[in-house]
Structure formats: structure tokens, C-alpha cells
């Protein structure tokens, strides 16, 4: 187990290094960040000064060596624009993104599971067909488009929910969250729903196919023959068996939620790290892009690792096959 974890971490380090080198030289090739920093009416002299201050006048390999030197000293660079530690900037924004992704995950389960169960238990029912058709739609709708429609409908036309931003934030056990107040949830609901849409479809489909498979299993038939109530069969026998794969897949999908939050955050002005990345890309704020890539790659590798470990711990079949082999 330990060797497995170590190997994965080594890989992670390799990806981080590769991505950092790519991003570093890539941003150098795209353009000179100085033009996004100085005001439009800056003189040649001012531009030159700023260039020297930040070392943009040096050849790229010298800049890279400076950067490596900083990394060795434990400093991962300061944002050109904000002048503060890039990693700190990202970590400060991370709770907002995590909260959004987490809320989307909850919505995906709360909405997707009952619909999927229904569609799986009564596959021929018209409502079930509608649900499945809806799930294809959910897969197909582009996130950015839906986001705007949600704002149009719920904020502008109906005026029920705020269009933008995050509610009041409280700190609990050192974790920042806006989920403890009603106003927080009002702000959270629309972006979370927008982000959850794809995953709702995914949960519906997973649940449906899992339910259909489970319904044909001997133990369910047996339970039915025993005269157990439908709700008990569903609640205990079916749900228990389909939850493990769903949880696993959702764990893996958490990473994609964090990634897609780039889109949702930019539409709903959600102050998360995805929005920060887009701004950094627009301003060619190289230290910030590099830091984002590092943080996010580590995050994904960690999520995948945890899911893998949990999966092998939870699912008896995985253990069985391992012991047989």
C-alpha cells in the first residue's frame, strides 16, 4: 500500500514539474506581461522600468533559473499583479470553490438519486422515459449557456435568488463557509445547480442502470418473494448495492466539478480560484498560473488517490479479486 501511494506521489511530482515547465515557457512565448500591468498611457521609460523590476528584460532561461531558485527557497513566486504570494492567493480562494463544488455534489445526489431510482424501477413508465430524455439533455447543455438562463429566470424575471457573488462567510473550525446562513444558501443555489447539471444526469444514469441490474439479482427476487415491502427492498437491498459505485464515480467527478467551476464562477461572479485563473491567463500573470497548476494537479492526484484507497477498502469484490490474484 505504501509503495503504491509513494509511486502515485512520484507521478504527481512529475506531472507538476512537466506542467510548470510547459506553462512557464508557454506564457513567455504568448506575450510580454508588462503590457497588461502598466496603464495605457505609460511612457517607454516606465515600461522599461517595470520590465527591469520584474526581470522581463532577462532571457527566458535566466528568468526560469530565478524561478527555480525561488522554488528551492520555498517561495513559489509572487503574483505580478497583486504583489502577494501566488500560492496564498489561490489558497485564499480555494474554500469558495470547494464549497461550490461540494454543494453541486450534494445537489447531484439529492436530485439525481431519486430520479434515477424511479427510472430504474419503472423503466417503461412515461415519467421514467422523460427523466432519461432529460438526462441526455443534461449531458448536452453547455454549462455557460444554462448559467445565463438560470440568472435570467430566477434572478431577473422572478427575482427569487441573487444573481451573483457569495453570501456572508463565517469561519468554523478554521474552514470558511457561507453554507451556515440562509443568505449564503441563496447565493449558492444557482451556481451550484448550474455546476451540478451534468452530474445530475450522470447520477440518474448510474442509479438507473445500477437499479435495473440489482432488481434482477437473486437477493432482490428473494426479498420480494419473502413479501418485504417495496420501500424496504429499495431502501435496503437495492440502494446499498448501488451506492458504492455511485460514490466512487462522484469522488472522481469532484475533480471535474472543480475544473468546470471556472465557467460557473465567471458567470456568477463567484469569488473562487477558477475566476482567479481566468484573470491570471488574461493578464499573463505567470506566477499565478504556475501556482494554480501546481495546486490543482496536487489536488486532483490526492482526490484520485483517496478514491482508489477507499474503493479498495469498501468494495468487497475488489478485495476478492486481489486475494485471488
Amino acid at each position: 500500500m505504501l509503495a503504491f501511494i509513494l509511486r502515485r506521489l512520484m507521478q504527481a511530482v512529475f506531472v507538476v514539474v512537466a506542467m510548470v515547465v510547459l506553462v512557464f515557457f508557454g506564457t513567455y512565448v504568448i506575450g510580454d506581461p508588462v503590457w497588461m500591468m502598466v496603464p495605457g498611457d505609460a511612457t517607454i521609460e516606465q515600461v522599461g522600468e517595470v520590465r527591469r523590476t520584474f526581470g522581463f528584460d532577462q532571457p527566458v532561461y535566466v528568468q526560469f533559473l530565478h524561478f527555480l531558485g525561488d522554488v528551492v527557497r520555498g517561495e513559489f513566486g509572487r503574483s505580478y499583479v497583486h504583489g502577494t504570494s501566488a500560492i496564498a492567493l489561490i489558497l485564499a480562494r480555494m474554500p469558495a470553490t470547494m464549497e461550490l463544488a461540494f454543494a453541486a455534489l450534494i445537489l447531484a445526489v439529492v436530485i439525481g438519486l431519486p430520479l434515477g431510482l424511479f427510472a430504474g424501477l419503472k423503466p417503461e413508465h412515461p415519467a421514467a422515459r422523460a427523466i432519461m430524455a432529460g438526462s441526455i439533455l443534461g449531458f448536452s447543455l453547455p454549462t455557460f449557456w444554462v448559467g445565463l438562463m438560470l440568472i435570467m429566470l430566477f434572478s431577473v424575471m422572478l427575482g427569487w435568488l441573487p444573481a451573483t457573488g457569495r453570501g456572508p462567510v463565517v469561519s468554523i473550525f478554521g474552514l470558511e463557509t457561507s453554507m451556515l446562513s440562509l443568505d449564503g444558501w441563496r447565493h449558492l443555489l444557482l451556481p451550484a445547480l448550474n455546476l451540478a447539471l451534468l452530474k445530475i444526469s450522470l447520477v440518474i444514469r448510474l442509479t438507473r442502470s445500477g437499479t435495473r441490474e440489482a432488481a434482477l439479482q437473486d437477493y432482490v427476487k428473494f426479498a420480494r418473494a419473502k413479501g418485504l415491502s417495496q420501500s424496504r427492498i429499495v431502501g435496503v437491498h437495492i440502494l446499498k448495492n448501488i451506492l458504492i459505485p455511485i460514490v466512487t464515480v462522484l469522488g472522481l467527478e469532484f475533480g471535474s466539478l472543480v475544473a468546470f467551476s471556472v465557467v460557473t464562477e465567471s458567470i456568477f461572479a463567484w469569488p473562487g480560484m477558477g475566476k482567479l485563473l481566468l484573470e491570471a491567463i488574461q493578464r499573463l500573470d505567470r506566477p499565478l498560473i504556475v501556482a494554480y497548476v501546481m495546486v490543482v494537479v496536487l489536488l486532483f492526484v490526492t482526490i484520485n488517490l483517496i478514491v482508489d484507497i477507499l474503493y479498495s477498502a469498501l468494495d468487497p469484490r475488489v478485495r476478492l479479486s486481489e486475494s485471488e490474484a
Partner: peptide
């Protein structure tokens, strides 16, 4: 559009 929506809402 989000900014305008924020004013309208």
C-alpha cells in the same frame, strides 16, 4: 450581463 442582472435583481 451578470453585472446588469445584479442591478436588476
Amino acid at each position: 450581463p451578470t453585472r446588469v442582472a445584479a442591478l436588476l435583481s
